[in-house]
Amino acid sequence: MESELNADVLPALVNEDTSLQRIALGIHGIPELKHDEKMNYLGEFRERIILRLTKRQVAEKLIYPEIKEALNHEKSSKMLINGTLSPQFTDKYIELAREMGKSYTMIHDPELTGETGLVVVSNEAVDIENIDVTSPNVI
């Protein structure tokens, strides 16, 4: 008798649970892994970043040679640029990406946090320990 009761109730609970899951997805959207981390790195996972410049570094007059090296990295796939930066600061990096045959994307997302101005990324994890450019050398 008890097993018959469980057999009748169980499918109803599973269906209700699925319905609740669908409602939650509709309200909140699909859950995203490491959302806060990604918003700090222009929408990318930290482990995919080859090199990063801050907004202040992108705004400097000359180009960091480390960006050219990062674009030449064997796993480099594209460059992402913070869309809040003025074209007068970003155009030099866009031109560099074009010259090197790499794609670039301007990221315009109001949820972006932090000071990231530009990242060179891979389509897979590269796990580079120090992604920040600290040298003042420019070309």
Rank of each mutant, 00 (worst) to 15 (best):
M1T: 11
E2T: 13
E2K: 00
N6C: 06
D8C: 05
V9H: 11
V9W: 04
V14M: 14
V14N: 04
E16K: 11
D17T: 13
Q21Y: 01
Q21V: 14
Q21N: 06
Q21C: 04
R22M: 09
I23P: 03
I23E: 10
A24V: 15
A24I: 14
G26E: 14
G26D: 14
G26F: 06
G26N: 15
I30Y: 05
I30C: 14
P31G: 13
P31H: 05
E32T: 15
D36R: 09
E37W: 03
K38V: 06
Y41F: 15
L42R: 00
G43M: 07
F45T: 12
E47V: 10
R48T: 07
I49V: 15
I49Q: 08
L51C: 10
L51T: 06
R52I: 11
R52M: 15
T54N: 00
K55H: 03
Q57E: 07
V58I: 15
A59I: 05
K61G: 07
L62T: 01
I63W: 00
Y64E: 06
P65G: 08
E66A: 08
E66I: 01
I67A: 01
K68I: 00
E69W: 03
H73W: 05
M79F: 09
I81M: 05
N82W: 04
G83R: 05
T84N: 04
L85M: 13
Q88W: 02
F89W: 14
F89A: 14
D91V: 08
K92Y: 09
K92M: 12
E95S: 10
A97R: 04
A97C: 03
R98W: 08
E99G: 06
M100G: 11
M100K: 14
G101A: 11
G101R: 03
S103T: 05
S103W: 07
S103C: 01
Y104C: 15
Y104K: 10
H108T: 13
H108P: 02
D109T: 02
P110L: 12
E111N: 13
E111L: 12
E111T: 13
L112R: 09
E115W: 03
T116S: 01
L118W: 00
L118S: 03
V121G: 01
N123D: 15
D127R: 08
N130P: 00
N130Y: 09
I131D: 13
T134R: 08
P136M: 10
N137H: 04
